[in-house]
Design a protein around this nucleic acid. Structure first.
Length: 496
RNA sequence: GGGCCGUUAGCUCAGUCGGUAGAGCAGUGGAUUUUUAAUCCAUUGGUCAUAGGUUCAAAUCCUAUACGGCCCA
């Protein structure tokens, strides 16, 4: 958008007012100091009656954005909005120095940032208000705010101009406060369990730890290609090798994929690793942590999402991939899932396209994703993922066809993925070689061979379990948001 | 990538069968010293997303493009 394109008469008018204000001095002063927030005043004095307030004579200086103005001749009511909420101002001509009321009425606009001071009182309708005896313009706003009662509803504008969305929509402010509170809870929880927060590279020479297409960038001085990370996993496990036996990181991952209501190119992941633990321990931890999270952030373990309700209070369901397929597909026989040819026939019946290179494990997962995943509504752990689709997970001792791995689902969506780590360096090397073969065969999401990671494992990774939790999807659940864009302050958008 | 829907005043939205572009809020002028979607009177404001096409005539019908929303892969 060019500078001039969206100018209009309303903006021109305000520029005129600003020019007039410049004549009188700096229209952007920064010497006003407030001593109260709207919500704090309401908490402290909202319940007092008119006489009590009058006798107490409480004064307050508030700063905020002018959100409404009702002029009734020589007196006006207005609402000021600050970071905490809103408070009403009662502005009277005869209570202000000569000329100030006229400025308030004519030169200032809704949307301007104002500082005001006066005594608290109750209006005859009982609303706590400030009887203003001092008021100043602190920032002139040049653009008109959206309509006061419908607000800003256009999704595109809400995403592109989040600042305006935040000014206008309390729901939006609430969503991002919950997001911050949720992340804070998770940090506190893990800190309390003795985990250490760390930061690992966002730019990697070999993008590892997940199956995804990376973003590519260029380091000029070293003249080399670098990748934005798709996961921190392999670095966090190097730290466990180094003796930091309980670590976590909350940070951005980048995946070069399409956009959808569940996908943004950059998204936030919590990953944590714990030595001398297995995937059962992490399921227990996850269950306790997420139940506590819901209680802390929502005040209840019943999470309402898009008209449904998910119960985080009861023990989370746990079943294997195969059990879940049989549970949701009564027409499939257990034996059909144990034979590649028969599993392929099942996939064909379900209209799932399989590549010739896909083995039995991949076939099972395709059937699972098509028929089970979207039906896992209440919190559910699915375990025993095939080794074929789990190149970094430890094989199960009793059944090496599967790994000691789980994924966690709520509302039909994958929220977390965890497993006992593969710490057999020779097995890991072999699995990397298989991934490379798949990449050579055309799978551009297959992993690279990471020789330094294998070398780290050769020094010895203690028995360890690790997990990743998708923060954005978790916050979507907690805030009843239908799109990932609703929980990202600045979601990725095509250029205007 | 495919399908469906949307784009009209600063914002929220109407716009009939193709026949002069509408409302509310905001703004502007006026009245108003307890309003809170304040009220009352008057009033300004439009590249109907963009580019083509059909037609005597297009916001309206057709095509393409852009951006967005929803669903599917």
């Amino acid at each position: 958008m060019t500078e001039q394109q969206d100018e209009n008469k309303l903006i021109a008018q305000r520029r005129g007012q600003l020019a007039a204000l410049r004549e009188q001095g700096n229209p952007f002063p920064n010497d006003f100091r407030r001593d109260a927030l709207a919500a704090d005043l309401l908490v402290a004095h909202g319940d007092r009656d008119a006489e009590e307030l009058e006798s107490l004579g409480v004064r307050a200086a508030v700063g905020g954005r002018l959100m409404s103005r009702r002029v009734m001749g020589k007196a006006s009511f207005a609402h000021l909005q600050d970071m905490s909420g809103r408070i009403q101002l009662f502005v009277q001509r005869d209570n202000l120095p000569e000329g100030v009321y006229q400025q308030f009425k004519k030169a200032w606009d809704i949307g301007d940032v104002i500082g005001a001071e006066g005594q608290l009182f109750k209006t005859k309708t009982g609303e706590l208000s400030i009887r203003v005896d001092s008021i100043r313009l602190l920032t002139k706003s040049l653009r008109p705010l959206p309509e006061k009662h419908h607000g800003l509803t256009d999704q595109e504008q809400r995403y592109r101009m989040r600042y305006l969305d935040l000014i206008m929509n309390e729901d939006s402010r609430k969503t991002f406060r919950i997001r911050t509170e949720a992340v804070r809870f998770l940090r506190n929880y893990l800190d309390g369990q003795g985990f250490m927060e760390v930061e690992t590279p966002m730019m990697q020479v070999i993008p590892g730890g997940a199956a995804a297409r990376p973003f590519v960038t260029q380091h000029n001085a070293l003249d080399m290609r670098l990748y934005l990370r798709i996961a921190p996993e392999l670095y966090l496990k190097r730290l466990v090798v180094g003796g930091f036996e309980k670590v976590y990181e909350i940070n951005r991952n980048f995946r070069n994929e399409g956009l959808s209501t569940r996908h943004n190119p950059e998204f936030t992941m919590l990953e944590f690793y714990q030595a001398y633990a297995d995937y059962h321990d992490l399921m227990d931890l996850t269950e306790d942590m997420l139940r506590g999270l819901a209680e802390q952030v929502l005040g209840t373990t019943k999470v309402r999402y898009q008209g449904d309700e998910y119960d985080f209070g009861s023990p989370f369901t746990r079943m294997t991939v195969k059990e879940s397929i049989l549970h949701f597909n009564p027409d499939i026989d257990a034996a059909e899932l144990d034979d590649l040819e028969r599993a392929r026939a099942v996939a064909e019946r379900l209209e799932i396209p399989l590549k010739a290179s896909h083995g039995l494990g991949k076939a099972q997962i395709e059937i699972f994703e098509k028929t089970v995943e979207h039906r896992l509504m209440n919190p559910t752990f699915i375990t025993a993922y095939p080794t074929e689709v789990s190149p970094l997970a430890r094989r199960n001792d009793a059944d090496p066809f599967v790994t000691d791995r789980f994924e966690f689902f709520v509302g039909g969506r994958e929220i977390a993925n965890g497993f006992s780590e593969l710490n057999d360096a020779e097995d890991q090397a072999e699995r990397f070689r298989q991934q490379v073969a798949e990449k050579d065969a055309g799978d551009d999401e297959a992993m690279h061979y990471d020789a330094d990671y294998v070398r780290a494992l050769e020094y010895g990774l203690p028995p360890t379990a690790g997990e990743g939790i998708g923060i954005d999807r978790l916050v979507m659940l907690l805030t009843d948001s239908p799109s990932i864009r609703d929980v990202l302050l600045f979601p990725h958008m095509r250029p205007e």
